[in-house]
Amino acid sequence: MTAVLRVENLTVDVGNLRIVDGLDLELRAGERVALVGESGSGKSMTARALLRLDPSVTVGGQVWLGDRDLVTLSEKQMQRVRGTELAMVFQDPSTALNPLRRVGDQVAEPLRIRGVSRRDARRRAAEMLDRLGVPRAAERLNAYPHEFSGGMRQRVMLAAALITGPRVLIADEPTTALDVRVQEKVLALIEQLAAEDGIAVLLITHDLGIVAGFADRVAVMYAGRKVEENSVETFFAGPSHPYGRGLLNSVPRVDRALTERLDTIPGTAVKPSARPPGCSFHPRCSAAVSRCSAEAPVLVTIGSGQVACHEV
């Protein structure tokens, strides 16, 4: 399988602060990869950096989309990539849609930007909304976002992202703002459309509960670095990195007694401005040895996965 998106040694700097530090990631055609981590781990910044969404942020390393390195493209060239080959949906559909513009126009916008006629763009917008299960899609093109429910708004956003038939969809916490039952539906829709159109999906989330049923592969980020990457099966069978284990143990499970206390990871996530020397996780790690505070572990391949820890 060839990679549609290959990220090599990605760095993201905001001012003097290194938010993402040397991330490698690969997305193969049609594959679904979850990038998980706590708030502040740099996962959302990674997503935005891939599209170079924030002009004030410095992106380093290489982001290969096919044979082009997105980091070296000009802003104009990047505009042609965004929304056509590389699409993105955001966390909160109530703020990510413009309240003053009609839903149909917002869905059709990527086509209109590329010079598709108004009529054709509207027709395709209605088709796309219909595929995403928006009832009476053609009639509702003229509605405004506030007339839609949260789940429907997320479908509208997905429709706008997928209307051009991109190769890669980056979904930044696409279900976090939705209630649990709607979450399931939206994820199922993403899965279905991605499979039908052969779109690779990078799902950014902190919710391991949705990862198991959705992703093929999991990459775990901590303090701006990838600490583990594995197939979903291997990861959920038993993550290799102590942080991954901690994350998984802190997910509520139906097969455990209600009287048992939920495990937590001691301490709080480290800020990029106060990254400790050595392994960033060692102050919170129960398996830490003296070497962990002195030397940063490198990613090593174990089986089909990778892990950055001295103790494995």
Binding site: R48, L51, L53, D54, E75, Q79, R80, V81, R82, G83, T84, A87, M88, V89, F90, Q91, D92, T95, A96, L97, N98, P99, E109, P110, I113, R114, M157, A160, A161
Partner: peptide, 17 residues
Amino acid sequence: RADHVAFARAKGASNAR
């Protein structure tokens, strides 16, 4: 700074747009 502006950017909108 609004999310919907970031989304418009992600759709490939130019700065002028």
